[in-house]
Design a protein around this nucleic acid. Structure first.
Length: 523
RNA sequence: GCCGCUGUAGUUCAACGGAUAGAACAGCGCCGUCCUAAGGCGUUAAUGCAGGUUCAAUUCCUGCCAGUGGCACCA
């Protein structure tokens, strides 16, 4: 539809001999201002001429056009258009909303990254929610995707955890107790060398246990990964690459090997420390190589917390110099922190709150329904632009009104029940407007057909919150429709109203699925 | 000190350079108890400060203020 309008405007401009490149056709915020709107009239200063020209041969599906405000041309779509869009939604079902914008493109998406021997905390939960949703959005835009999680399975945090079998205990002792610190450093060395069979065994058992725990949480969250990578495998590969490029990309400084980010407006970072041991930076280069070998991607996305922004800016440029064919194919998306109001909800075992603890806490508020609890949490994370911190208000997250996951799930569940009842009464859908008395076009109808465009935009901007915003508005309109219409009755309009319910049901389900939010059939 | 991010109704968030800055919650005033009242309608209320660019600035540029993150051998 949008393309049709754009095309006709371009033709109109041509025949009027006007030139303008950057006009837009968009959905106005307010439905009163039409279904589509263009600013081409303002850009050219010839709104009247353009509208006159368009009216001579109006775009199909457009009922009328209006000149408004400082020169906007608003397009109002016809009832037939909405009827047709309902039909399309119902025919496409689970496919409605998908597009082929990124067809043929391969995306490698890395997210979550929990470290073995440490807790899967609410930061990982936030990262996973965003990563999973972005993966699904990109997939809905037609790309081929592979997902991976990357684990820090070597390093001081592991030694701290192995010291007395508990990371928090080890981390505390490491700071406060000199003797413990020495012991932990000793353990760290043994882990690297694999020289102590007792430690080797504890390491293997502990790592396996952690990874199993992570798998359980992924299942609970509805997330799965195609690949797992480990720092223990990236370190050596990275180190070799750094040494191979010493003198060209990297240089020695104060005994360490560094990358001079200043030459590209960034800052210096250490890749090999003065003991010539690889740092995290170097491991990322090794990881890039492994990823490339695993799946030759066109675009790699790494989702992390935004405290790592400066780090990734340098590492991405350095990696691009080591692998010129990866230049500009590495991108990282960062999110803020999930914070709980006033630091309440402390955990007994440590100062971080685990994902499980948060899920259980929310579950208690929703009669133990895990799908609802997970939906509540995920929605709170996805409802706002990634990048900013989230203040997680527990009561708000499980609110049945307005801006919450429960609200969306409920609206969806309700339509299932309605459709079931209609089915039991033998009512069928009717998306054919002929012979129907269509008193008015409902607000919910006016929003339904926009879903594919929302998915497309979300894919372009990596912005799940476009979808949550849309679904919330849609559910609001549906509730309004529901409150004012007798949906199931014996009138001739009933089958058509039912078709609206069916289309809403499909769009809501597809939307929640793309967000990674559970859509319970019943509540 | 340098670099990045953030600053919008009482609160939590929106707004691809466009129209009267949009929602939700809270507040106030109504409707409503036959399909899930786990509902509906109305209403009050905001762009940190000062300049600049533009027909048009929350959005872009400059300075200031406030908050936050990062800045050499951690990840």
């Amino acid at each position: 539809m949008k393309e049709d309008i754009e095309k006709l405007i371009k033709e109109a401009l041509k025949s009027l001999d006007l030139k303008v490149n950057d006009f837009v056709v968009e959905h106005p915020v307010d439905l009163k201002m039409g279904d589509y709107s263009t600013n081409v009239g303002i850009k050219t200063g010839k709104a009247k001429e353009i509208i006159t020209h368009l009216e001579a041969e109006p775009p199909s599906g457009v009922e009328r056009m209006e000149l408004a405000g400082p020169g906007f041309i608003n397009f109002y779509l016809s009832k037939e258009f909405f009827t047709q869009s309902l039909r399309e939604i119902i025919e496409k079902r689970g496919e409605f909303g998908k597009n082929e914008n990124l067809k043929g493109k391969r995306f490698f998406i890395e997210h979550t990254q929990p470290n073995p021997f440490k807790e899967f905390h609410i930061g990982h939960l936030m990262n996973n929610t965003i990563g999973e949703s972005i993966s699904r959005i990109i997939q809905a835009n037609g790309a081929e995707i592979k997902t991976a999680s990357y684990h820090g399975d070597v390093g001081m945090h592991v030694a701290k955890a192995l010291w007395k079998g508990d990371y928090a205990l080890g981390a505390k002792a490491f700071e406060e107790d000199q003797a413990a610190k020495t012991e932990i450093q000793e353990i760290n060395k043994k882990i690297y060398e694999k020289s102590d069979s007792d430690i080797n065994m504890k390491y293997e058992v502990g790592k396996k246990k952690s990874l199993n725990e992570f798998e359980k949480i992924y299942r609970k969250l509805g997330s799965k990964f195609d690949h797992s990578f480990f720092e223990s495998e990236t370190a050596e590969i990275g180190k070799k690459l750094v040494l191979d490029n010493l003198g060209t990309v990297f240089e020695e400084s104060e005994g360490a090997v560094v990358y001079r980010g200043e030459k590209v407006g960034l800052h210096t970072r250490v890749f090999l420390n003065s003991d010539k041991l690889p740092t995290y930076e170097t491991k990322e280069i090794g990881l890039a190589k492994i990823k490339r070998q695993t799946f030759p991607f066109d675009q790699s996305l790494t989702i992390t917390g935004n405290e790592q922004d400066a780090f990734f800016n340098v590492v991405e440029v350095a990696t691009g110099e080591v692998f010129p064919n990866l230049k500009s194919k590495l991108k990282h998306l960062s999110h803020g922190m999930l914070r709980l109001p006033t630091g309440k909800m402390s955990s007994r075992t440590s100062d971080v709150i685990t994902a499980e603890e948060l899920i259980d806490k929310i579950k208690k508020k929703v009669k133990g329904d895990e799908a609802v609890a997970i939906g509540a949490i995920k929605y709170m994370i996805l409802r706002q632009a990634i990048g900013n911190d989230i203040v997680f208000d527990i009561d708000k997250s499980v609110s049945i009104e307005g801006d919450s996951g429960v609200y969306l799930q409920y609206a969806y569940a309700r339509t299932n029940s309605l459709l079931e009842k209609a089915d039991a009464q033998g009512l069928t859908l009717n998306t054919n407007s002929q012979g129907q008395t269509l008193r008015h076009t409902h607000e919910v109808e006016k929003l339904l057909y926009r879903f594919p465009e929302i998915v497309e935009r979300a894919g372009r901007d990596y912005a799940p919150h476009y979808i949550t915003t849309y679904l919330t508005a849609l559910a609001g309109s549906f509730n309004n429709f529901y409150a004012h219409e007798q949906i199931i009755d014996s009138s001739p309009e009933s089958p058509y109203r039912l078709a609206i319910v069916k289309a809403f049901n499909i769009v809501m389900k597809n939307g929640l699925t793309i967000l990674g939010i559970p859509a319970p059939e019943k509540m």
